[in-house]
């Protein structure tokens, strides 16, 4: 029996060291969602993707122009999304046209 004791002690030391030095790393899968083609798609993708994936758009309930204007305004005023004035109009129209009531 006695000769197992040092082995057990070594095992305990090794286990403790493994826990103390533990690094956990993950790799997130790529984003795969695409937007519907149409005028303004590029601008919408560029602006929205700065902060989030495009499924944030595609999973929302379809809403009219007022809904998407509200969303774009919120993204700019609340989160500070830097979108130029011409792009704002284009993106709002694109979203209302392609992700409107369904």
């Amino acid at each position: 029996m006695r000769r197992f004791v040092p082995a057990l002690a070594l095992m305990l030391v090794a286990t403790t060291a493994a826990v103390a030095g533990e690094t956990v790393s993950i790799t997130l899968p790529p984003e795969s969602i695409a937007l519907k083609a149409g005028p303004g798609m590029d601008q919408a993708q560029t602006a929205c993707r700065m902060c989030h994936s495009l499924d944030y758009i595609t999973t929302q309930p379809g809403g009219g122009a007022a809904q998407w204007q509200g969303v774009v305004t919120k993204m700019m005023k609340v989160y500070g999304a830097p979108i130029s004035e011409p792009d704002v109009k284009l993106i709002e129209e694109y979203l209302a046209t392609h992700y409107g009531p369904r």
Partner: peptide, 8 residues
Amino acid sequence: IPTSVDLD
């Protein structure tokens, strides 16, 4: 979000 954390 964090994707790697070293407990040290």
